[in-house]
Amino acid sequence: MDKKRIVIIGATSAIAEHCARLWAQTNLIDITLVGRDTSRIERIAKDLQVRSPQSEIHIVKTGFIEPNVIQSTADNIFASGPVDIVLIAHGTLPDQIDCQNNLSTTHDALEINGVSPALYAEAFARHMAVANLGTLAIIGSVAGDRGRKSNYVYGAAKGLITRYAQGLQHRFAGTGVKVVLIKPGPTDTPMTAHLKNQGAKLTSVESVAKNIVKAIEHGKATAYVPCKWQIIMLIIRHLPAFIFNKLNI
């Protein structure tokens, strides 16, 4: 049986890791875990290997900022053949107030949450176009649907991903390549640990991952996870400014 070939950019993300566990549990896979810290990626690689001894697991340590590093990372991965699924998952939730007080914090947040995933998507899109095959999934966020005072720096970067994915979907319409945009709601991962201490209600990472894996399997264009966020964000997007501006969100 041919192994499904999967690549995860930002493989140490809790959401991505739980997707990888689900894939390893149900299929024989050939998975490449891409991250910035070897020891962290290795820890996950070992875990997946225990869960699925017959699967092949590769790790790649690379950069997330430099365009030529991003391109060569994608080139190297495709050098050994086409890929069935690429999941771009990295991101970080900056402190909004810090961003307002310090432009370089804002710059870094926009770069890692917006520009970097877009460049990775573009780098892989080139190869997937040639192969005319595969699913390119990118994790955006419900925060990208409308700018809010509590996190518009992060939201703007995620908004960039929304437009980028839209453009790619247009470009690949009618081809063998599918582009899936994933918009999680608040999820219980290390990224949101501080929110949990403030009493926020978070969805379990297992159930978010389950929905993402399903959306990727079906090649869904946009997947809110869990799906209730589709309705909530529909309302939020359409609230008139005179109401919206009074909300403390």
């Binding site: 820890r43 996950i44 070992k46 875990d47 225990v50 869960r51 290390p190």
Partner: peptide, 11 residues
């Protein structure tokens, strides 16, 4: 519960 990785299993 964040320390939830398997490390090695000998069948």
């Amino acid at each position: 519960t964040g320390l939830d990785r398997f490390i090695q299993f000998n069948d």
